[in-house]
Each structure stands twice: as C-alpha cells, then as structure tokens.
Design a protein around this nucleic acid. Structure first.
Lengths: 241, 241
DNA sequence: CCTAGTTAATGTCAAAATGACTCTAACGCG
DNA sequence: CGCGTTAGAGTCATTTTGACATTAACTAGG
C-alpha cells in the first residue's frame, strides 16, 4: 500500500469535502512587572477529547452552514473563552492532509486583538488559561497550532499600520509611554522615547487630547487618541463576520 | 420566512460542511507597446455551467480529499489553462454565505506569478483568454472573483520584498530597465532610472552578472540575477503544495 | 517651603536615505 | 565619423533617522 492515511478511502467513498473549522489567535498586552518590558500574551484552551487530549490549543470549532467564517471565529472564541475582541482579521488557511491524525481537517485561522483591560478576563475554567508569548509551557501545542501562533506574530510584526494595532490593544485613550510599551513588546526591542514621540506626532492617525493621566507619582502624561481612517481590506467585523 | 437562502435547510438537513474550492489569480507582465508602460495581465476562463455561465472567472475547482490546498490550486490551474507558474502563495479564504447563488461555497484564493515568456502561452481554447489588468471587459467577473483580483493587486503593491516578486515575473536574468518596468507596472507610476539603479545596487538580493544583452539598437545593458534568501512564510511550493 | 528624584516633553546635530538632476559611456546607424 | 539613443555614474539639496542633551512638571521627603 501507499502512504495515504487509512481514512482517505472513507472520505473518498463518501465523496465528502474536508471538515471545515476555525481557530483564533487572540493576542493581548500585559504590563511588565517592575520596570520590565510589556509582554504579549494569549488565552488557550485545553483539549478534553482526542486527538491531542490534554494539550493546549487555540480556541475554535467547526463552521456552521449558516454562518460566515468570521462569524464562526467570533462565536467559537466567545463560547470557549468568553472573550469578545474588538478586532478580528483572517490569518491563513491550513489544509495539509496530515495535520490531524484522525481526519482531513481544513482550518481557517483568525487573528484577534484584545483591549488591555480584558486580558485575563476569561471564563472561570481550569481548561482555559493565559500564557505569555515566550512561555516555554506553550512551545508545543495541539495540531499545528504552534505554527499558527508563530505566523500570527510574524504578521503582527510586519504590519504596516502600527497605529491601528496599538490602539486596539490599549483602548480608547492611552499615553505615549503605554503605546511605546506595546511597540516594544511587538518588536522585541527598546525604542527611543523622543524619536518615538516625533514619529507619532507626524502620524495623522494619532491625535493629542487635552486630558492628562492623573494619579501617577510624577509628571502626568498627556492622553492620546486614535483617529482611524477606515479598516484595511483584511479586517473583519467581529460581530457580523 | 427569514432571509435565509432556500438551500440552507438542505445543507442543514444533510449536515454537510460547505463545499471547498480553490481559485487562483495568475499575474504576468506584458511589455508595453511603442514606449508605453508595461502592463500586468492575467488569464481567465469562461464559465460554461451555471451559475454565472458565460462570464469570465478565475481558474480553479474543488479540493480533493487527498491533496493539499496548494496542490489543488496548482492542479486546477494547470488543468484549465495549461500554465505552470513558478510562484504560488495563498491569498485569502472567501466564505460569505451568499457568494454563490446555488450552494454554500468556501473558496481558498491563491496568487501566482508567471515568467514573462509564459505570458500568453495558454492552451488553445476559446474559453481561456488573457486580459490586461485595467481592461474594462473584466470589470465584472463571476461570483466575487473581481474582489479577489483586486485583493491580489493590493497585496502585490504592498509587498515588502519587491526583489522576489520582480524576478518571478521576469525569469532568471534580466536587465535593470526590464526590472524597472515591472515595478512601474505594479506601482502604476514612473520611477527615476538613476535612483532605481542606486536602490537596487544597495540590495543584496540582486546581483550583477558579467553578461550583457546583445542585439539591441543601442548600448547593451548588463544582465542581473536574483539571489534569493529563502521563501517567506506565505510561500507555497507550486509542485508539492 | 524647599530640594531631590522621576518621568514627560522638547531641542539639537550628525549621519543616512531620498528625489531631482546632470554628466559620461557605449552601442547602432547612416 | 558624428548623431541619436540608451546604459550607467555622479552631484547636490532636502528629508528622514538615530543618538543624545535639555527643559518642564509632578511627588515625596525633609
């Protein structure tokens, strides 16, 4: 016999198309501890069924016949984690024949960003947990989900329009220092505060408000606001998919 | 009744996943006529079955259970057009519920680039034809294929690594003028020859050979060569998917 | 109230990159 | 040979970038 998996005949006989599912990489930002850099982090769910039972995996699930792909992503991630991100974009479709050991599975991967105040606010469930992006505990994930996470990070780092991404991780108003922390977490290196300020001042999409963040120990920083200029072609409405 | 399509019940009753297909946007470059700029062009196939019979559409077809998605793209586009591009990358997956009037269809769109000497070399078939990218005859295409073409062009223009793209449209060796023509066709504007040369000289991925293109009417231009530095994460092996 | 400490915000300056342009080299053709 | 044309190198002012210095505004501690 050949190296074709044993289930191939079954699928072929029934003339069924591959099973269709969605998975979502949900990224958020977590403030660094005692002067350390901010960290990117994401929620994962532990699989309770075969295959890969017990391993951490991306939230997701099958696509229903009456929903769009983006809707499926939003629905499954809300169902498993309770999270409702404000940004959702399609990432890539993974369809190698051997990516699941039990059946032919095509997965459309999505990529979501979460406001900082929602990070950690998942459902109470021992099978849902947050991990820092560099946590060695998630070096291996179920299926090819580690590859999907790496690809999401690659895409985040290569985004042209950083303004959009940063504000979707922070929320409505933010200080320049917080925004710089986000950039540093994404790029993995320190940035000069003065030069960072200069570049953002020349960016039309970020606007100074006349409010300041009070309560700190030192000089209060000004608050800024993102003034978007329309979604890019990849973006998906998280509510209507 | 609601606005749910009439076939939704059928799919739901049978509990079938959506039908899975691939479509490919194949782009090539065509030398401009009498001093005019080069043009991007692509092959399309005329649909002979419903829905959208008679309209031009992207080459493609259903995904078999025993092939990867990239293999499906390569197989279907070779089958319909006879072309074998040297570059294939996944573009986007389109899965809106109403994108086909007759059934639920999820299409994984691919994006291919063709060497200049293969442009026009499709099978002899009145239902296969080449069109310039700005040809008004293709302002409307079957399904949402016009949207897919526009997205492929957007992605091409926003590529960071232009060297790769250009050499995949031209072939092994090329002159700087030919390369500049490709850039101009992609970007839609003229570029300064001297500055273009300077930029490419500082690019490690393009290397001068000691050969010159003979046979022209004027000073023979030097031939250059692309020395790639590995595929990016999006790229697909056109042969093995 | 005054000063030290810390962070916010602005300013300076040289190096590097960019855009517009000029100048020289090398071919075919008559 | 000289002319037309394209290849290729060089010039220069402007803009952008990275590194660093300086000033401003607050709190905390005495």
């Amino acid at each position: 016999m050949t190296s074709v998996p044993s289930w191939a005949n079954v699928d072929e006989r029934r003339n069924l198309p591959p099973a269709l599912a969605v998975s979502t990489v949900i990224l958020g930002i977590r403030p660094g501890v005692e002067g350390g850099p901010d960290k990117l982090c994401l929620p994962l769910v532990r699989r309770i069924r075969q295959p890969h039972a017990g391993m951490w995996a991306l939230p997701g699930g099958p696509v229903d016949a009456r929903e769009s792909l983006g809707q499926a992503a939003g629905r499954t991630l809300a169902g498993t984690t309770g999270l409702r991100p404000n940004y959702l974009e399609q990432l890539y479709t993974f369809g190698d024949i051997d990516r699941s050991p039990t059946h032919r599975l095509v997965t459309i991967a999505y990529f979501a960003l979460l406001h900082v105040d929602q990070v950690g606010a998942t459902v109470q469930d021992p099978n849902v947990a947050w991990f820092d992006i560099d946590d060695p505990a998630i070096a291996q994930l179920a299926f090819d989900h580690r590859k999907i996470v790496d690809y999401a990070l690659w895409r985040l780092r290569n985004k042209t329009e950083y303004g959009q991404i940063a504000h979707r991780l922070l929320g409505e108003r933010f200080t320049l220092a917080a925004l710089r922390g986000v950039y540093e977490a994404i790029l993995g290196r320190r940035l000069d505060p003065a030069n960072f300020r200069r570049t953002l001042n020349s960016t039309a999409s970020i606007e100074a408000t006349d409010e300041y963040l009070a309560g700190g120990k030192h000089r209060p920083p000004r608050l800024y606001r993102y003034v978007g200029h329309g979604p890019d072609p990849l973006e998906v409405d998280p509510l209507h998919g």
